[in-house]
Amino acid sequence: MIVKQRAYEAKEALLMPALYAAQREHGWMSPEAMKSVARALDLPPATVKGFATFYDMFRKKPVGKHVIQLCTNVTCILSGSEDLLSMLSDKFGIAPNETTTDGRFSLVAMECIGACGTAPAMIVNTDFYENLTKESIFSILENYK
């Protein structure tokens, strides 16, 4: 675990970083992942589940190797992110919240990611991309094998 426990007063405060760490390792919030977090922090598994299912950042089902999170909030839509989303869907043959059969990509339609000034924008895994165009988006994704 990256964070030392003594930095936090209550064990619950460690839950978010611990869940991120578990998700990095397991890929999604599987029951085993939640149980291992509960065991590591000595918290009831149900409490962990309540946390993990509340937040969208924790995946409720297995995802592909790379997660494309394309913003579809107001500014991005006005700048054409809807078209980008349907292009991605067509190209990979998946609807939002689905994973390609080869397990390479998962597609997620995001709410605002705070890049309205440089819309449309997306996050792939943890990398941020802005001012997307129909051309640039595919060349960016080429880098994710």
Binding site: P44, T47, K49, T53
Partner: peptide, 25 residues
């Protein structure tokens, strides 16, 4: 369950319209 019994067996899962009371399993 958590404040009186201390079993912490159930929780509210998910969010908003999809919130349900559930045990871990």
């Amino acid at each position: 369950c958590s404040d009186v019994q201390g079993a912490d067996a159930i929780t509210i899962t998910n969010r908003g319209n999809k919130s349900y009371v559930e045990p871990f399993s």
